[in-house]
Computed example of a mutant assay.
Amino acid sequence: MKQTWKNGLPSSPDYFPIGVWLQSPQNASRYTAAGINLYVALWQGPTEKQLAALKAAKMRVVCEQNAVGLAHKDDPIIAAWMHGDEPDNAQAVTDPVTGKKGWGPCVPPQKIVDDYKRLREKDPTRPILLNLGQGVANDAWKGRGAGAKLSDYETYVQGGDIISFDIYPAANNLPLGLVPKGVDRLAGWTGGKKHIWNCLECTRIDGKSKATPKQVRSETWRAIIHGSRGLIYFVHQFQPKFNEHALLDDPEMLASVTATNKQIQELAAVINSPNGKRTEQGGVELLTVEHAGGLTIFAAATGEKTVRVAVAKTGKVEVLGEGRMLKATNEGAAGQALFYDTFAPEDVHIYRVTVR
Protein backbone atom coordinates (compact mmCIF):
# COMPACT_ATOMS: atom_id res chain seq x y z
CA MET A 1 0.00 0.00 0.00
CA LYS A 2 1.61 3.21 -1.23
CA GLN A 3 0.78 6.51 0.38
CA THR A 4 3.10 9.45 0.81
CA TRP A 5 2.92 12.83 2.50
CA LYS A 6 4.86 15.98 1.68
CA ASN A 7 6.31 16.27 5.19
CA GLY A 8 5.84 12.70 6.35
CA LEU A 9 8.10 9.70 6.76
CA PRO A 10 10.55 8.78 3.99
CA SER A 11 8.84 6.98 1.12
CA SER A 12 11.99 5.18 -0.01
CA PRO A 13 11.48 1.40 -0.24
CA ASP A 14 14.64 0.83 1.79
CA TYR A 15 13.26 2.74 4.80
CA PHE A 16 11.59 0.89 7.68
CA PRO A 17 10.37 2.92 10.68
CA ILE A 18 11.66 1.63 14.02
CA GLY A 19 10.49 3.80 16.90
CA VAL A 20 10.82 4.07 20.64
CA TRP A 21 7.96 5.14 22.89
CA LEU A 22 7.97 8.31 25.04
CA GLN A 23 11.67 8.81 25.63
CA SER A 24 13.82 11.75 26.68
CA PRO A 25 15.54 13.39 23.69
CA GLN A 26 18.82 13.35 25.61
CA ASN A 27 19.12 9.63 24.83
CA ALA A 28 18.45 9.96 21.09
CA SER A 29 22.03 9.20 20.06
CA ARG A 30 22.01 5.99 22.12
CA TYR A 31 18.82 4.86 20.42
CA THR A 32 20.26 5.72 17.02
CA ALA A 33 23.15 3.40 17.82
CA ALA A 34 20.59 0.66 18.55
CA GLY A 35 19.06 1.02 15.08
CA ILE A 36 16.09 3.15 16.13
CA ASN A 37 15.22 5.96 13.74
CA LEU A 38 12.07 7.50 15.21
CA TYR A 39 10.78 8.88 18.51
CA VAL A 40 7.08 8.29 19.13
CA ALA A 41 5.40 10.69 21.58
CA LEU A 42 7.11 13.18 23.91
CA TRP A 43 6.45 13.70 27.60
CA GLN A 44 4.38 16.90 27.97
CA GLY A 45 5.55 17.94 24.54
CA PRO A 46 6.61 18.79 22.03
CA THR A 47 8.49 21.69 23.55
CA GLU A 48 11.02 23.89 21.77
CA LYS A 49 13.81 22.31 23.81
CA GLN A 50 12.73 18.75 22.91
CA LEU A 51 12.52 19.51 19.19
CA ALA A 52 15.89 21.26 19.22
CA ALA A 53 17.53 18.26 20.91
CA LEU A 54 15.98 15.81 18.44
CA LYS A 55 17.03 17.95 15.50
CA ALA A 56 20.61 18.02 16.80
CA ALA A 57 20.50 14.22 17.05
CA LYS A 58 18.83 13.89 13.59
CA MET A 59 16.04 11.87 15.17
CA ARG A 60 12.61 12.39 13.63
CA VAL A 61 9.55 12.36 15.86
CA VAL A 62 5.83 11.60 16.00
CA CYS A 63 4.37 14.13 18.41
CA GLU A 64 1.16 15.83 19.48
CA GLN A 65 -0.27 18.67 17.45
CA ASN A 66 0.05 21.30 20.19
CA ALA A 67 0.91 25.00 19.71
CA VAL A 68 4.66 24.32 19.54
CA GLY A 69 4.17 21.48 17.09
CA LEU A 70 1.98 23.55 14.80
CA ALA A 71 4.55 26.35 14.90
CA HIS A 72 6.97 23.81 13.40
CA LYS A 73 4.75 22.64 10.54
CA ASP A 74 7.57 23.32 8.08
CA ASP A 75 10.17 21.53 10.21
CA PRO A 76 11.06 18.09 8.77
CA ILE A 77 12.01 16.81 12.23
CA ILE A 78 8.27 16.20 12.78
CA ALA A 79 7.40 13.09 10.77
CA ALA A 80 3.80 12.53 11.89
CA TRP A 81 1.21 13.64 14.43
CA MET A 82 0.25 11.53 17.44
CA HIS A 83 -3.49 10.94 17.87
CA GLY A 84 -3.58 9.87 21.51
CA ASP A 85 -2.77 6.49 23.03
CA GLU A 86 -5.12 3.59 23.76
CA PRO A 87 -8.44 5.43 23.42
CA ASP A 88 -10.05 1.98 23.20
CA ASN A 89 -9.18 1.30 26.85
CA ALA A 90 -11.21 2.44 29.85
CA GLN A 91 -10.37 6.07 30.59
CA ALA A 92 -9.48 7.54 33.98
CA VAL A 93 -12.26 9.63 35.53
CA THR A 94 -12.71 11.63 38.73
CA ASP A 95 -16.06 11.90 40.50
CA PRO A 96 -16.83 15.66 40.57
CA VAL A 97 -18.59 15.32 43.94
CA THR A 98 -16.36 12.97 45.93
CA GLY A 99 -13.10 13.47 44.05
CA LYS A 100 -12.70 9.70 43.94
CA LYS A 101 -10.69 8.42 40.98
CA GLY A 102 -11.89 5.51 38.91
CA TRP A 103 -12.34 4.21 35.40
CA GLY A 104 -14.98 5.13 32.86
CA PRO A 105 -15.75 3.82 29.40
CA CYS A 106 -13.38 3.97 26.45
CA VAL A 107 -13.34 7.02 24.17
CA PRO A 108 -16.26 6.75 21.73
CA PRO A 109 -14.93 5.56 18.35
CA GLN A 110 -16.69 8.30 16.40
CA LYS A 111 -15.01 10.97 18.55
CA ILE A 112 -11.62 9.60 17.48
CA VAL A 113 -12.68 9.86 13.84
CA ASP A 114 -14.02 13.40 14.29
CA ASP A 115 -10.84 14.50 16.07
CA TYR A 116 -8.75 12.92 13.32
CA LYS A 117 -10.53 15.05 10.72
CA ARG A 118 -9.75 18.19 12.73
CA LEU A 119 -6.09 17.23 12.99
CA ARG A 120 -5.96 16.63 9.24
CA GLU A 121 -7.45 20.05 8.55
CA LYS A 122 -4.68 21.74 10.54
CA ASP A 123 -1.94 19.90 8.65
CA PRO A 124 -2.72 17.62 5.69
CA THR A 125 0.99 17.17 4.85
CA ARG A 126 1.76 14.57 7.53
CA PRO A 127 0.22 11.25 8.53
CA ILE A 128 -1.53 10.80 11.88
CA LEU A 129 -0.65 7.82 14.07
CA LEU A 130 -3.36 6.21 16.19
CA ASN A 131 -2.15 3.65 18.74
CA LEU A 132 -4.71 1.23 20.12
CA GLY A 133 -4.53 -1.12 23.10
CA GLN A 134 -4.35 -4.87 23.57
CA GLY A 135 -8.07 -5.33 22.94
CA VAL A 136 -7.15 -5.38 19.24
CA ALA A 137 -5.81 -8.92 19.75
CA ASN A 138 -6.82 -10.08 23.23
CA ASP A 139 -10.52 -10.88 23.42
CA ALA A 140 -10.17 -11.73 27.12
CA TRP A 141 -8.91 -8.24 28.01
CA LYS A 142 -11.17 -6.68 30.69
CA GLY A 143 -9.70 -3.19 30.48
CA ARG A 144 -11.89 -1.68 27.79
CA GLY A 145 -14.65 -0.51 30.07
CA ALA A 146 -18.41 -0.98 30.09
CA GLY A 147 -20.17 -1.17 26.75
CA ALA A 148 -17.05 -1.74 24.62
CA LYS A 149 -17.31 -4.25 21.79
CA LEU A 150 -14.97 -5.70 19.17
CA SER A 151 -16.83 -4.03 16.30
CA ASP A 152 -15.78 -0.63 17.72
CA TYR A 153 -12.43 -1.14 16.04
CA GLU A 154 -13.96 -0.92 12.59
CA THR A 155 -14.64 2.74 13.42
CA TYR A 156 -11.49 3.41 15.45
CA VAL A 157 -9.23 2.54 12.51
CA GLN A 158 -10.84 5.33 10.47
CA GLY A 159 -9.21 7.76 12.91
CA GLY A 160 -5.64 7.58 11.64
CA ASP A 161 -3.36 7.08 8.66
CA ILE A 162 -0.97 4.82 10.56
CA ILE A 163 -2.77 2.36 12.85
CA SER A 164 -0.75 0.72 15.60
CA PHE A 165 -1.51 -1.37 18.67
CA ASP A 166 0.32 -2.58 21.74
CA ILE A 167 0.28 -5.92 23.48
CA TYR A 168 3.06 -7.34 25.66
CA PRO A 169 2.33 -11.06 25.89
CA ALA A 170 5.48 -12.34 27.58
CA ALA A 171 5.21 -9.76 30.36
CA ASN A 172 1.61 -10.83 30.96
CA ASN A 173 1.92 -14.60 30.43
CA LEU A 174 -0.06 -14.53 27.20
CA PRO A 175 0.62 -16.34 23.91
CA LEU A 176 3.16 -14.62 21.65
CA GLY A 177 0.78 -15.33 18.77
CA LEU A 178 -1.41 -12.42 19.91
CA VAL A 179 1.10 -10.09 18.24
CA PRO A 180 0.59 -11.38 14.67
CA LYS A 181 -3.12 -11.86 15.41
CA GLY A 182 -3.44 -8.13 16.14
CA VAL A 183 -1.59 -7.23 12.96
CA ASP A 184 -3.93 -9.45 10.96
CA ARG A 185 -6.98 -7.88 12.55
CA LEU A 186 -5.85 -4.32 11.86
CA ALA A 187 -5.09 -5.23 8.26
CA GLY A 188 -8.56 -6.70 7.94
CA TRP A 189 -10.38 -3.81 9.59
CA THR A 190 -8.55 -1.27 7.39
CA GLY A 191 -9.01 -3.29 4.22
CA GLY A 192 -5.29 -3.05 3.56
CA LYS A 193 -5.63 0.69 2.93
CA LYS A 194 -3.62 2.00 5.90
CA HIS A 195 -0.15 1.53 7.30
CA ILE A 196 -0.10 -1.05 10.11
CA TRP A 197 2.47 -0.82 12.93
CA ASN A 198 2.78 -2.52 16.30
CA CYS A 199 4.47 -1.99 19.65
CA LEU A 200 6.99 -4.45 21.10
CA GLU A 201 7.93 -5.34 24.67
CA CYS A 202 11.58 -5.56 25.71
CA THR A 203 11.60 -4.85 29.47
CA ARG A 204 10.01 -6.15 32.65
CA ILE A 205 7.43 -3.31 32.52
CA ASP A 206 5.58 -3.85 35.81
CA GLY A 207 7.79 -6.29 37.67
CA LYS A 208 6.14 -9.52 36.51
CA SER A 209 7.48 -11.70 33.73
CA LYS A 210 10.00 -10.39 31.27
CA ALA A 211 10.38 -11.35 27.62
CA THR A 212 13.63 -13.03 26.63
CA PRO A 213 15.64 -11.65 23.70
CA LYS A 214 14.55 -14.69 21.70
CA GLN A 215 10.88 -13.97 22.41
CA VAL A 216 11.24 -10.33 21.38
CA ARG A 217 12.93 -11.40 18.15
CA SER A 218 10.10 -13.86 17.52
CA GLU A 219 7.42 -11.22 18.14
CA THR A 220 9.25 -8.81 15.84
CA TRP A 221 9.58 -11.08 12.85
CA ARG A 222 6.14 -12.66 13.23
CA ALA A 223 4.65 -9.16 13.16
CA ILE A 224 6.60 -8.35 10.00
CA ILE A 225 5.66 -11.65 8.36
CA HIS A 226 2.00 -10.78 8.96
CA GLY A 227 2.34 -7.30 7.46
CA SER A 228 3.47 -4.84 10.14
CA ARG A 229 5.49 -2.10 8.46
CA GLY A 230 6.57 -0.13 11.50
CA LEU A 231 7.73 -1.05 15.02
CA ILE A 232 7.64 0.85 18.31
CA TYR A 233 9.66 -0.44 21.26
CA PHE A 234 8.17 0.07 24.71
CA VAL A 235 11.24 0.38 26.92
CA HIS A 236 9.88 1.55 30.29
CA GLN A 237 10.03 -0.40 33.53
CA PHE A 238 7.64 0.64 36.31
CA GLN A 239 8.30 -2.05 38.93
CA PRO A 240 10.11 -2.91 41.08
CA LYS A 241 11.88 0.40 40.34
CA PHE A 242 10.95 2.98 37.72
CA ASN A 243 13.32 3.22 34.77
CA GLU A 244 12.27 5.22 31.71
CA HIS A 245 14.99 3.71 29.51
CA ALA A 246 15.32 0.18 30.90
CA LEU A 247 16.33 -1.21 27.50
CA LEU A 248 19.48 0.92 27.52
CA ASP A 249 20.44 -0.59 30.89
CA ASP A 250 20.00 -4.21 29.77
CA PRO A 251 23.12 -5.20 27.76
CA GLU A 252 21.81 -8.59 26.62
CA MET A 253 18.45 -7.31 25.41
CA LEU A 254 19.99 -4.18 23.89
CA ALA A 255 22.49 -6.25 21.89
CA SER A 256 19.71 -8.51 20.58
CA VAL A 257 17.38 -5.62 19.69
CA THR A 258 20.25 -3.80 17.97
CA ALA A 259 21.10 -6.86 15.88
CA THR A 260 17.46 -7.36 14.88
CA ASN A 261 17.06 -3.70 13.95
CA LYS A 262 20.19 -3.86 11.81
CA GLN A 263 18.87 -6.89 9.98
CA ILE A 264 15.49 -5.22 9.41
CA GLN A 265 17.15 -2.16 7.91
CA GLU A 266 19.37 -4.31 5.68
CA LEU A 267 16.30 -6.15 4.40
CA ALA A 268 13.90 -3.19 4.35
CA ALA A 269 13.57 -3.11 0.57
CA VAL A 270 12.72 -6.81 0.59
CA ILE A 271 10.23 -6.46 3.46
CA ASN A 272 8.53 -3.51 1.74
CA SER A 273 8.28 -5.33 -1.58
CA PRO A 274 4.70 -5.99 -2.72
CA ASN A 275 5.74 -9.42 -4.01
CA GLY A 276 5.57 -11.28 -0.70
CA LYS A 277 3.52 -14.43 -0.21
CA ARG A 278 2.65 -15.74 3.26
CA THR A 279 2.18 -19.46 3.92
CA GLU A 280 2.24 -21.82 6.89
CA GLN A 281 3.75 -25.27 7.18
CA GLY A 282 3.71 -27.55 10.18
CA GLY A 283 4.12 -25.00 12.94
CA VAL A 284 6.17 -22.47 10.96
CA GLU A 285 4.87 -19.39 9.16
CA LEU A 286 6.76 -18.10 6.15
CA LEU A 287 6.92 -14.97 4.08
CA THR A 288 8.54 -15.58 0.70
CA VAL A 289 9.56 -12.47 -1.22
CA GLU A 290 10.84 -12.23 -4.79
CA HIS A 291 12.98 -9.13 -5.06
CA ALA A 292 15.81 -7.92 -7.28
CA GLY A 293 16.22 -11.28 -8.94
CA GLY A 294 16.44 -13.29 -5.76
CA LEU A 295 14.31 -14.95 -3.12
CA THR A 296 14.22 -14.19 0.59
CA ILE A 297 12.25 -16.36 3.00
CA PHE A 298 11.35 -15.16 6.49
CA ALA A 299 10.35 -18.08 8.68
CA ALA A 300 9.20 -18.17 12.31
CA ALA A 301 8.07 -21.00 14.58
CA THR A 302 4.50 -20.67 15.84
CA GLY A 303 4.28 -23.62 18.20
CA GLU A 304 5.99 -25.07 21.25
CA LYS A 305 7.47 -28.16 19.60
CA THR A 306 10.61 -28.54 17.53
CA VAL A 307 9.62 -28.98 13.89
CA ARG A 308 11.43 -29.67 10.64
CA VAL A 309 10.28 -27.65 7.67
CA ALA A 310 10.82 -28.25 3.98
CA VAL A 311 10.89 -25.17 1.74
CA ALA A 312 10.60 -25.90 -1.96
CA LYS A 313 13.13 -23.65 -3.70
CA THR A 314 15.92 -24.23 -6.17
CA GLY A 315 19.31 -22.71 -5.61
CA LYS A 316 22.04 -21.96 -3.12
CA VAL A 317 20.59 -21.25 0.35
CA GLU A 318 22.24 -18.96 2.91
CA VAL A 319 20.80 -18.62 6.43
CA LEU A 320 21.27 -14.91 7.04
CA GLY A 321 23.04 -13.86 10.21
CA GLU A 322 23.79 -17.44 11.24
CA GLY A 323 26.82 -18.34 9.13
CA ARG A 324 25.09 -21.44 7.74
CA MET A 325 24.50 -22.75 4.25
CA LEU A 326 21.84 -25.31 3.38
CA LYS A 327 21.83 -27.84 0.59
CA ALA A 328 18.81 -28.20 -1.67
CA THR A 329 17.99 -31.79 -2.62
CA ASN A 330 15.85 -32.94 -5.53
CA GLU A 331 13.17 -34.61 -3.46
CA GLY A 332 10.22 -32.47 -4.42
CA ALA A 333 7.48 -33.11 -6.94
CA ALA A 334 8.69 -33.11 -10.55
CA GLY A 335 12.27 -32.81 -9.37
CA GLN A 336 11.71 -29.56 -7.47
CA ALA A 337 14.53 -28.93 -5.01
CA LEU A 338 13.88 -28.89 -1.27
CA PHE A 339 15.94 -27.62 1.60
CA TYR A 340 15.21 -28.54 5.18
CA ASP A 341 15.78 -26.74 8.47
CA THR A 342 14.86 -27.29 12.11
CA PHE A 343 12.87 -24.88 14.27
CA ALA A 344 12.84 -24.98 18.04
CA PRO A 345 10.12 -22.99 19.84
CA GLU A 346 10.32 -19.24 19.07
CA ASP A 347 13.04 -19.75 16.44
CA VAL A 348 13.32 -17.39 13.50
CA HIS A 349 15.41 -18.13 10.40
CA ILE A 350 15.84 -15.93 7.35
CA TYR A 351 16.98 -17.51 4.09
CA ARG A 352 18.41 -15.98 0.96
CA VAL A 353 18.11 -18.24 -2.05
CA THR A 354 20.36 -17.49 -4.99
CA VAL A 355 18.21 -18.76 -7.83
CA ARG A 356 19.95 -20.89 -10.42
Rank of each mutant, 00 (worst) to 15 (best):
F165E: 04
K194N: 06
T4W: 10
K111M: 12
K208W: 09
A67D: 14
K117A: 11
G207M: 13
N37T: 07
L286P: 01
C63K: 12
T314V: 01
Q50P: 00
G182E: 03
I297V: 15
L119V: 01
P180W: 06
I18P: 07
G19S: 14
P96F: 09
D139V: 03
R60Q: 12
L130H: 12
L9T: 04
A137Y: 03
A57R: 02
N275F: 15
V309I: 15
W197D: 12
A246W: 07
P109I: 15
I77N: 09
T329G: 03
Q265I: 02
Y153G: 07
R278D: 15
P169R: 04
V179F: 01
G159P: 12
A28H: 05
I264H: 08
A56G: 00
Q110Y: 05
K122L: 14
I167H: 10
S11C: 01
V40L: 15
T296L: 01
E266P: 00
L70F: 05
T354S: 11
E290D: 05
T329F: 09
S24K: 08
R120P: 02
D161Q: 08
K316R: 12
H72P: 06
T342A: 04
W141L: 02
G335F: 05
G147W: 06
T203P: 04
G69Y: 10
W5P: 10
G84P: 13
I225L: 13
F298T: 02
E318F: 05
L186I: 12
S11M: 04
Q91T: 08
F339R: 04
A328H: 07
C202A: 11
L186D: 02
